[in-house]
């Protein structure tokens, strides 16, 4: 396995519940794995754990391994080298992730690309006139171009694992499609794993090999993309799917999930989704969620899952 998260639990100071609660996730080399959920469900924190980048004051238990390195045990120079060579993150807002006063060339150079390689990288991510762009500053480029620059920066180190945190959410659809195609090509070329974080379940289902659905810092469901889309097992996944309109449906089928995503100050004795769940029963309020294996190999953390109810072995 390229990335393994094993029962990762992360507590922040002064919060009522862990920001990540018993998260187990894996990515094989060359695999595209989606991570879906509402804002605040812990997607970014999960991705950053692979970089050993936990919020200030966080207490973590469980395991994070990239190849066979225990990331949570890394410190100082070893941790810096891990971030500089093995894993690269593509940030959500390219304009915020680039230093406004420095040139594009500086951004690529400090990630270890010399001038020739920087030009080559910008050309590879589809920027025209790369030689000239190296001397530009972020405010002189559009959002789509900047996202390509960020991707070029992430590729500069030839990472084994790419973390794309809402990498395309801020872009218009045509640019989004180009960037998605680009990421897939690059992943195939370098046989890198890709963790694709998005709040768009349809996009994840169409783009990824496997998808994890997160809710309140927990993995609610883990399925292959196709299975997730056709036979969602967790009521939250079903809720997410019926939240977004699809072509050919009448407007009456659009059903938002009632309530709002829980904050870090809400605690749950049982299933965190129970208060918003249309199918919740009394025992759900006290049932501690655990992943239950589905017949097709996926898993869902819902006690109503119609299964042989064998516990999954993570």
């Amino acid at each position: 396995m390229l990335l393994t998260l094993d029962h990762l639990t992360v507590h922040l100071p002064d919060t009522a519940r862990p920001v990540l609660d018993d998260v187990s996730l894996r990515i094989a080399p060359g695999e595209v794995v989606g991570l879906v959920g509402e804002s605040g469900s812990g997607k970014s924190t999960t991705a950053k754990a692979a970089l050993g980048l936990l919020p200030a004051g966080a207490r973590a238990s469980g395991e994070v391994r990239v190849d066979d390195t225990d990331i949570l045990a890394l410190t100082g120079e070893a941790l810096r080298r891990h971030r500089a060579s093995t894993v690269a993150m593509i940030h959500q807002d390219p304009r915020a992730a680039l230093n406004p006063v420095r040139r594009i060339g500086d951004f690529l150079r400090e990630r270890g690309a010399d001038r020739a390689r920087a030009t080559e990288l910008l050309a590879a991510v589809g920027l025209s006139d790369p030689e000239h762009r190296l001397r530009r500053r972020p405010h002189e480029l559009s959002g789509g171009m900047l996202q390509r620059v960020i991707i070029a920066g992430a590729l500069a180190v030839r990472p084994r694992l790419l973390l794309a945190d809402e990498a395309t959410s801020a872009l218009d659809v045509t640019t989004q499609a180009e960037i998605l195609a680009l990421l897939r090509t690059l992943r195939a070329e370098q046989d890198a794993g890709l963790l694709f974080i998005t709040h768009d379940l349809h996009l994840a289902a169409a783009y990824c090999d496997r998808v994890y659905v997160m809710y309140a810092g927990r993995i609610a469901e883990e399925r292959t993309a196709k299975a997730l889309f056709t036979t969602p097992a967790h009521p939250y996944t079903r809720g997410l799917l019926s939240c977004s309109p699809t072509l050919g449906e009448t407007s009456g089928t659009l059903r938002p999930i009632p309530g709002r995503p829980p904050s870090l100050y809400d605690t749950f004795p049982g299933c965190p989704f129970a208060p918003r769940c249309p199918d919740a029963e009394a025992p759900c309020e006290t049932w501690r969620p655990e992943p239950l294996t589905l017949p097709d190999g996926g898993a869902a953390a819902c006690r109503r899952t119609p299964v042989t109810a064998a516990r999954s072995t993570p």
Binding site: L53, R81, H82, R83, A84, M89, A96, A97, N99, E110
Partner: peptide, 11 residues
């Protein structure tokens, strides 16, 4: 954010 991004890149 760009400082955190730089740190995440192991600079």
């Amino acid at each position: 954010d760009h400082v955190e991004a730089a740190r995440a890149s192991g600079i």
